[in-house]
Design a protein around this nucleic acid. Structure first.
Length: 198
DNA sequence: GGTGTGATCGTA
DNA sequence: ACGATCACACCA
């Protein structure tokens, strides 16, 4: 029986939060059904000290949610067509810290996910990327700022521990030349639903 | 398996 | 102008 993560769980720096989100359950109680995926890939973003973060240049209307309390969702629109979702971690006042949800393994509601992602030929294509994940779960701009602490969106612990030794790499999609050498991506080694790095 | 390219638009 | 991406075409 799964227990919903509380505010205290999210109130840590994203570098600490990211790896322990692995193997947790992301749940969306959607009108079309209960959708559940096991989180298998994440990346940490760290605000003012992290040029790769949307929050690096300070708070804007777009990034306002990242500067708010932990345990909420930061959902952003990119490439003119895709939504990506982050969990807000603890940030010092005036700073921001967040974890990008990059991939999940479908657990429940797979039929609904397939209907929403007709391009996915195999089940491992359903949620193996940040925009694929939001599409399969029906998460979009309307969910920006939504809380995970209660309501239809939440993250749950069903007793499966995070990997003792998670896979780790540099983050995907950031210019490698611009000092992107931090290994702030974590994933469940060997899991089929992890996205491909480059 | 791999690489290359077009789509599409809010943000700064 | 470009991006915390994806799908598809093509080659192997």
């Amino acid at each position: 029986m799964a227990r919903r993560l509380t505010r205290a769980f999210f109130a840590r720096d994203s570098l600490e939060l990211a790896p322990i989100l692995l193997n947790k359950l992301l749940v969306h109680d959607d009108p079309e059904g209960r959708l559940v995926v096991r989180i298998v890939e994440v990346e940490a973003y760290r605000g003012s000290v992290d040029p790769g973060s949307h929050a690096y240049r300070g708070e804007t209307p777009r990034t306002a949610v990242m500067f708010g309390p932990p345990g909420r969702l930061y959902v952003y629109f990119t490439y003119g067509m895709h939504w990506c979702a982050n969990v807000i971690a603890f940030g010092a006042p005036g700073d921001a810290s967040a974890v990008l949800l990059r991939a999940g393994e479908p657990i429940e509601g797979v039929e609904v996910m397939r209907a929403r992602r007709p391009a996915a030929r195999r089940d491992r294509d359903l949620c193996s990327g940040p925009a694929r994940l939001t599409q399969a779960l029906g998460i979009g701009g309307a969910d920006n700022g939504a809380t995970l602490l209660n309501g239809p969106l939440g993250i749950f612990d069903d007793g499966v521990a995070p990997p003792r030794r998670p896979g780790r790499s540099t983050r995907v999609g950031l210019a490698p030349g611009k000092g992107e050498k931090s290994r702030w991506r974590w994933f469940v080694t060997g899991n089929e639903h992890v996205s491909r790095h480059r």
